[in-house]
Nucleic acid binder design. Sequence first.
DNA 1: TTGAAAGCGCTAACAA
DNA 2: TTGTTAGCGCTTTCAA
Lengths: 337, 337
Amino acid sequence: MAPTIKDVAKRAGVSVITVSRVINAAEYVRAETQARVLAAIEELQYVPNQMASSLRSRQNDTLALVVPDIATTFWTAMARGAEDEAWAKGFSLFLCNTDDDPAKEERYIENLLRRRVAGIAIVATLNSATLLTRLQTHSLPFVMLHRKIGGIEADVVRSDSRAGAVALTQRLLDKGLRRIAYVGGPLAGSLGQDRLAGYREALTGAGITPDPALIKLGLHTQQSGYELVTELLTLHPRPEGICIGNSRLALGALHALLAAGVRAPDDIAVATFFEISSLIDDSRLMRTPLIVATQPAQNIGRLGIRRLLERIAGGHGTAEDILLPVEIADRVGWAMT
Amino acid sequence: MAPTIKDVAKRAGVSVITVSRVINAAEYVRAETQARVLAAIEELQYVPNQMASSLRSRQNDTLALVVPDIATTFWTAMARGAEDEAWAKGFSLFLCNTDDDPAKEERYIENLLRRRVAGIAIVATLNSATLLTRLQTHSLPFVMLHRKIGGIEADVVRSDSRAGAVALTQRLLDKGLRRIAYVGGPLAGSLGQDRLAGYREALTGAGITPDPALIKLGLHTQQSGYELVTELLTLHPRPEGICIGNSRLALGALHALLAAGVRAPDDIAVATFFEISSLIDDSRLMRTPLIVATQPAQNIGRLGIRRLLERIAGGHGTAEDILLPVEIADRVGWAMT
DNA sequence: TTGAAAGCGCTAACAA
DNA sequence: TTGTTAGCGCTTTCAA
């Protein structure tokens, strides 16, 4: 049986509360007393029981990060940023992996409620709304990362998709291109909406009226990217550039160009959001020159936790929507990050 | 204030222990009583307090995984396997990120001891020995993943480095090559030793006496790989093939070949262990055909947790050293996984 | 099938 | 500066 605070107290000839004070680096302990207690702790190899402490003090230094997949670079970069920040502030981070599966997500949230974690940072799915409401019912502080869910009054930390899409499209415009297409996923979430809006905004700003025939929306899949771009290639005249809203779509798009013998950027220039490197499985694609918008995944995690801790500390006020800028870069081949 | 089991009991008109029985799906509760309790739980939105339960019952369903970096694909693949297995068995997994920094590792272990986690799966560093002894002192079950530390009597789950090195070298031999060099890291850990041993073994098996001049050992860095291969290229005659023990060394090696205008595999064939994709930052390297040994990261995580749970359940017996086979593949360009 | 009492290991609140 | 008492929310043990 592991020694308890009582054993230490007995050994040091003091009361348990004195030991508690030493452990918690509290004041009002004579140096000599403290030394005796520390010696007893050392002799008994005593390790305080965090659960007991937490139960009594109602203080918990555990946070949770809920992401779709801990094996995807975008999410792990975020997790890394979150972990660093939590660690720096003396908190531990529980990592939860939902696979975007509502059932798994729900079981995790339930688990976190039972653990009485101090707060949750979550990459919500569209089905998360009721779960998040549940958190509010239990007054468990949380922030949303990357994805903003409508109807929920809570802090969000995400990249500025609209500005990113504007910048990507602008790069194509700067090359003198005018017929610029857009390939995106479903408009269900704010991400898709913002990116399409950014594309339109850039065109309008350049005095171009967005052409509905050049806007193709499908699923967030490689297959979809392939099909949508293949459709675009049948147009006469063909688009001169394509702005793409998502990594998987981009991979499909590149495959479609390859299959059609269309070269980027000479025939059609490609500008795309890109989050993940793990899907690249074809070295021919890696050499396609692209304009890429990279999202500050690590910073989203870092600032998300920072905001969460502010909430926990009671820094109230209205919910904030924190937008971080995306970085635009020309890539000769893919650069993995 | 969150409702407690007491509140539920009052509302349902039963004793707290009856509520406890319902929560824990225990027997000896009349269906009608159970229904009343469940109704009360629902009405109060009661969520059991896991810390209180755990404190009293001395049962903890939390495991920990300690890895060098949660943002490196090899470790996250392992984490993913570990998480899946833990989740399937009804356990939660605490993910800890040490950066291979002994101070950080120690703080984490201390943290885990305080939390009274049920067990730890750890990718140990060479400095971990005393920490692991500490775990044994506290009878906290643990398994080592990927790296085997000498002098510690504990379960290990890792890939079969020796067999992997044999297979890589054999592939080069099968191409009819005879002058095969080896580039590896320090021999401090078992990994480096096993890989070098495998290389020697394959050569000896083919009737070739390993030539000390062809064996170059340095650090686990890209820089080291560059330097060692550059040295190899000054030999007359030059080696016809190189077996490399580590990803970073491999990247440096490829740079060296590129700089010297040596083409792989025509001039020199390269066979290498490869764990990470995140370091690839040069598209020219990606196109180099290689023979690659891939380690079953996810399975290491999965089986590690499985073994850990067996330990926790009291499946005693002597410590096992579980070796998983590596997969050897020819890669035309890099395939990211 | 249900309940009362005790206590897991710690800290808050107060007293000395 | 130190100690006493009570109790955090739950489960164990025993009794009914």
